[in-house]
Design a protein around this nucleic acid. Structure first.
Lengths: 198, 198
DNA sequence: ACCTGAACACCGTTCAAGT
DNA sequence: ACCTGAACACCGTTCAAGT
């Protein structure tokens, strides 16, 4: 029900009182099921991220996909999850930051790279970099999308007034992919230099 | 005054009412100076990020530092700013996401790379990647630091119970640097492949 | 085990009115 | 130009009491 309220009315309207109303119950009733609002929001965040946790880990298949592709798949799926529900990126961002949930990217990247000889530390760092990038990007992106859909012009567009030809629609998903590719390349470079040294 | 309240009592206590009290004024008085609370918080965020905007751009000096070092300097300085004030990372994260301020990393990285022959698109993507990574990392980090200082054990530590020897203090600033290095390497790889093609 | 009723201690924001 | 006073419409959370 919280997930439904979130998507229909947004995070600011996802209050304990509104949720209780939608469930036909008193607000205090929610506190038998959750210790506080943050815990409830963390549970909602986990649901939003479930598709990432349930991704098929292609690490053990016959034709092993490249590390680059694994990283890209993880990043794309994570971004999709965050954009599926209104304010999803904002909600997950804060749940992650407050340590109320773990990023599913880390265990997934461990699985996907367990055949290769890569230090766990490197995987942990790549997972953190990827998670922070995707969540931050999607948060910002979702905000712009929602501002657009309300007819407001995004504040970002006004800052380069002379670049009128490239304002709209081009600064979108391509940039996201390029950022993912940069992280994947950096990961591979780190793998190379560590296996060279070790 | 808002900056002082933030650092002394944290973001949840930085309310219009508390700020008005600290200024010896009625809450409604603040609405003559700022249209709403978000605008006020955006102004505070800009102050927190000021040291990044005021960094000396070493791009025009005689001995040009490497792109790798430029990225590292920017990332380190940004992280320092965010950790300087209590809840600084959280505040800046939301101001950035809502488009109420711009990341100072983008213009700085443009300055620093303007002598080299690097496409503006690549610089924009590297700046976005770096910003999202550093802000997300610092947000999470600051939360853990503050939980620690309150005597609470961070939730993250309990998830790998067998890894008792590596729990504390090692998963810290080194990992941050390694993430920055990964982004810098990915940036350089992208520069190489674009100048090869172009 | 699960929920109600009522209260406590707050919020951001508006707006007529003052000086 | 800058602020007060008072109100409006909300919040999250607690806790005795019910069934």
């Amino acid at each position: 029900m919280a997930l439904r309220l979130l998507d229909e009315h947004g995070l600011p309207d996802l209050t304990m009182r509104n949720l209780a109303d939608a469930l036909g119950v008193q607000p205090s009733a929610l506190y038998w099921h959750f210790p506080n609002k943050q815990a409830l929001l963390a549970a909602v965040s986990a649901r939003i991220l479930a598709p990432v946790s349930e991704m098929s880990t292609s690490g053990t298949t016959i034709h092993a996909t490249s590390v680059h592709d694994q990283v890209r798949d993880l990043g794309d799926t994570l971004r999709e999850c965050l954009l599926t529900y209104r304010d999803g990126a904002e909600l997950v961002s804060s749940s992650l930051a407050f340590g109320l949930i773990e990023s599913p990217v880390h265990p997934k990247l461990l699985e996907a790279t367990k055949d290769a000889d890569i230090s766990e530390r490197l995987v942990r760092i790549a997972a953190a970099t990827l998670t922070h990038y995707v969540v931050g990007y999607a948060f910002h992106e979702q905000q712009r999308l929602q501002a657009d859909s309300l007819g407001l012009l995004p504040a970002d567009a006004e800052l380069t007034p002379e670049a009128a030809g490239e304002t709209a629609a081009h600064t979108g998903a391509d940039d996201f992919d390029a950022g993912i590719a940069m992280i994947a390349d950096g990961f591979e470079a780190a793998i190379r230099s560590s296996s060279t040294v070790g």
